[in-house]
Amino acid sequence: MQHSRLVKDTHADRIFKIFLNIFILLAVLIVLYPLIYLLSASVSSPQSVNSGQMWLFPVKFNLDGYKVILRYSDIWRGYGMTIIYTFVGTLVSLFITIPCAYAISRPDFKGKTWVTNFMLVTMFLNGGLIPTYLIVKSLGMMDTIWAIILPGAASVYNIIVTRSFLQASIPWEMQEAAKIDGASTFQIFFRLVLPLSAPIIAVMALFYGAGQWNSYFNALVYLTNKSLYPLQMVLRQILVLKDMQQGASTGLTAETAQAAYSKEQLVEIIKYGVMIVSTVPIIAVYPFLQRYFVKGVLIGSLKG
């Protein structure tokens, strides 16, 4: 807050301020510690990590984990698939979201209330997992890229956020003037509105892209062919399933159980490295794009 500093803080205020700063410092440390630990653990020897000798900074620095990861083809195939899913998925999401948001942002679109309600209903009512699965299956999408991309391609929330942005930032008078000059809706949309919507397109691409990059559930439900697995599914096998060899329900085959011992050791070497490797793209862009993510939330909050 930048209110005037003319009035000096009282004694009680200063103590209160110290208290607040300690709270924030604690929050930052609690968030930061596991992240630093991950990074350090990924470049320390597994023995020193597992024995607890390494607890903050790397001990017996080595890159063995990353060397194994580099040769681990499943991870890189998963990476490739995730890049494809994220890229195509984001394009499809934008293709659905932006034109629709523009249409319902137009005050002269008579059907806008109807269309908006038609979409809003799905926020609170939905068929649920099983019927959705049966529909996707009956459309022949099982084990295809479309099962990963299409079922969650658009979110009502994002469409509403985009609509709010367009309403607030592109004056309707400007579009009306173009309309009077004889521009068609398509011309207004492609030549006038789209060039002015770069910020919201960036925000939406980030929301959808990050969502797709991080998701595993659609792949778990709709993919049986392991060569189509996105990165998150490969990670799930490495990080989660290894701990549950006794669990038949997790879908471990006899073959994987047989190789369990060597796999167990392998997992110990690479587990922290794969967490880093899979998160690096997001962490690398995050500091630069943080304000866009925040912007997306802010636009969303305008409309309550």
Partner: peptide
Amino acid sequence: FISVVVMGG
């Protein structure tokens, strides 16, 4: 921005 799978891991 950490994925749920990495979180679980």
